[in-house]
């Protein structure tokens, strides 16, 4: 019988039924939900099934709203709190809308964690410069929390944050507490001011020339819209930060998160598998080509 005889295919790809299905979500219950801005929500999740493996800051998960669909969303929580997952997402469509609406008690699906991390460990002994555009602060929050929990490992900690207008400021409680620390520099700017705003006005790159870090000894972590990544990377290069010490978190359409669906290609890289965090020397030839 051929069923018990080794076939060419079984020899090449292994036996048929080993391994778990990477496309099946784990169920998590929403235990807390906080409105960050008009359309942005932070949720804390506890597992109903076996939890997903611990994540590293910068990695993402695929979040599933029952019957509606799935989207890739970065973790925004403290990586040392393995019992609770935290993410922050903005309502920009059907799936994110359904997820944002999930209140405590609701159950959503989670697959992950996937992709590369900010790799904070490799920045030991350096100045850490976190640069966020809008909701790009979410994956950087995880990294900043990790850095603060190991404060003695790093030199200066700098957070540069740009948002469209003061109403878009999220993680306000965190921002206040970080601003109150004597060994963290937090600079915030808004693209457009508003009545009552006494802070800086201008895009986030305008903060770069004066930001208090040593370009020869800094590692930069950047997350935001793609146009912001391009100009921030250029600005950091102009300050003298070498490309291999500039890390950028990119975004692409994703259907699987594990390198099977082909959607997240950016030239030769798969963003879900080789990213989302890349060093600028890898990304520069790709980031500056239109429609790649």
């Amino acid at each position: 019988m051929t069923a018990v005889t080794e076939s060419a295919a079984a020899d090449l790809v292994g036996s048929a039924d080993s391994g778990t299905d990477p496309m099946v979500p784990h169920r998590y219950r929403v235990v807390r939900r906080r409105l960050e801005t008009r359309d942005t929500v932070t949720q804390l999740l506890e597992p109903l099934d076996e939890p997903i493996p611990a994540f590293a800051p910068g990695q993402f998960a695929m979040l599933y709203a029952f019957g509606v669909g799935e989207v890739p969303i970065s973790m925004s929580g403290d990586p040392s709190r393995v019992e609770l997952l935290q993410h922050t997402l903005r309502n920009v469509g059907a799936v994110t809308g359904a997820l944002c609406a999930a209140r405590p008690g609701a159950v959503i699906g989670v697959r992950g964690p996937f992709g590369t991390s900010w790799d904070l460990n490799s920045a030991y002994g350096h100045d850490l410069v976190f640069i966020a555009g809008g909701i790009g602060l979410a994956p950087l929050r995880s990294a900043l929390l990790q850095a603060l929990s190991q404060r003695e490992r790093y030199r200066r900690l700098v957070l540069l944050l740009g948002v469209r207008n003061p109403d878009e400021l999220m993680f306000r409680k965190d921002l206040r507490s970080w601003k109150g620390l004597f060994d963290v520099d937090v600079e915030i700017t808004v693209d457009r001011g508003a009545p009552g705003w006494r802070g800086q006005v201008g895009v986030v790159t305008t903060l770069l020339p004066q930001a208090p870090f040593d370009p020869d000894n800094a590692v930069a972590f950047v997350c935001g819209p793609e146009v912001m990544l391009r100009f921030t990377a250029l600005g950091l290069s102009q300050r003298g930060v070498p490309a291999q010490r500039i890390r950028l978190s990119t975004e692409r359409n994703m259907k699987c998160g594990v390198g099977l669906c082909g959607h997240c290609q950016l030239g030769p890289v798969l963003v879900c598998r080789d990213g989302p965090v890349f060093s600028y020397d890898r990304l520069a030839p790709l980031l500056h080509v239109r429609e790649l």
Binding site: T2, S7, A8, A9, A10, L12, V13, G14, S15, A16, D17, G19, T20, D21, P22, M23, V258, G259, L260, R273
Partner: peptide, 24 residues
């Protein structure tokens, strides 16, 4: 396709299952 779908870090279980059972 074996390389992409069956022997990657997160193999596709459907493809791998159909492929491993196949006779060519």
């Amino acid at each position: 396709q074996d390389r992409v779908l069956a022997t990657s870090a997160h193999p596709d279980s459907g493809y791998r299952g159909r492929r491993a059972r196949s006779f060519v």
